Amino acid sequence: MIVRIMGEGQVQLDDSHFAELNTLDDELLREVESGDEAGFRRTLTALLDAVRRLGTPLPDDALEPSELILPTPDASLADVRDLLGDDGLIPG
């Protein structure tokens, strides 16, 4: 799966990593819904760090369609609330 972090670029992620990412995504969803700013910031950072750590960066000139788009690291709680679907940022 190709994942884009807004403002950073794309990474290729193996599907085997989605259980770990979904755990963080579920936590992020709970924090956004409850308005927990500190928890939101911590979990968003952990989610983006996990994508960077587990993924393989694509070259900057690669223009692959992204199957998943994640917010910038400095996104506000309100920005992420607008991006969330019923399943969070990561479907499934």
Rank of each mutant, 00 (worst) to 15 (best):
S76G: 15
L89D: 02
E31H: 04
D87F: 10
R53P: 01
A78S: 11
S66F: 07
G39N: 04
G9D: 05
L70I: 10
A46C: 08
G35P: 07
D87H: 14
D82C: 06
D15F: 11
E20G: 02
A46I: 10
G9P: 12
A19H: 05
A46T: 13
A46F: 03
L13K: 03
P71H: 08
R53Q: 11
I69D: 09
L68G: 08
L83M: 14
G7H: 07
T45V: 03
L83Q: 09
A46N: 11
R53I: 06
G55K: 03
P59N: 11
S34N: 08
D79I: 05
R81E: 12
L13S: 03
G35V: 07
D74P: 00
E37I: 14
P65A: 13
V11G: 02
G92R: 12
R81Q: 11
E20Y: 01
Q12R: 15
L24I: 02
Q12K: 15
G85H: 01
T43Q: 03
N22D: 11
Q10C: 15
T45D: 07
R53D: 12
R81Y: 04
F18I: 12
Q10E: 13
L77A: 09
R4F: 11
A46V: 09
E31S: 06
S76E: 06
D87S: 12
L13A: 07
L54R: 14
L47F: 03
E67F: 00
D15W: 12
L13Q: 07
A75F: 00
V80Q: 01
M1Q: 05
I69L: 11
G92M: 10
S16P: 01
Q10H: 09
L21F: 02
D79S: 15
V32L: 03
R30I: 03
I90R: 07
D79A: 15
S34L: 13
G85F: 03
V11K: 02
G39F: 04
G92W: 10
F18G: 09
G55S: 06
I69G: 01
D25R: 09
L70S: 09
D60P: 12
G7I: 10
V3P: 02
I69C: 09
P65H: 09
L68F: 08
Q10S: 14
E37K: 12
E64K: 13
P65L: 13
G35R: 07
T23V: 13
R4K: 15
R81L: 06
I2N: 13
T45N: 05
D36C: 01
E8G: 03
G9H: 05
S66N: 08
L58R: 15
I2S: 08
R42Y: 05
S16V: 13
S34Q: 12
E37N: 04
D79Q: 15
D60S: 14
L29R: 15
E67A: 13
D26R: 15
R41L: 09
R4G: 10
L13V: 08
A78G: 00
L48G: 05
I90M: 07
L47K: 01
I90G: 02
G55I: 08
S16L: 10
R52A: 05
T23C: 09
T23I: 12
G55E: 02
A19L: 13
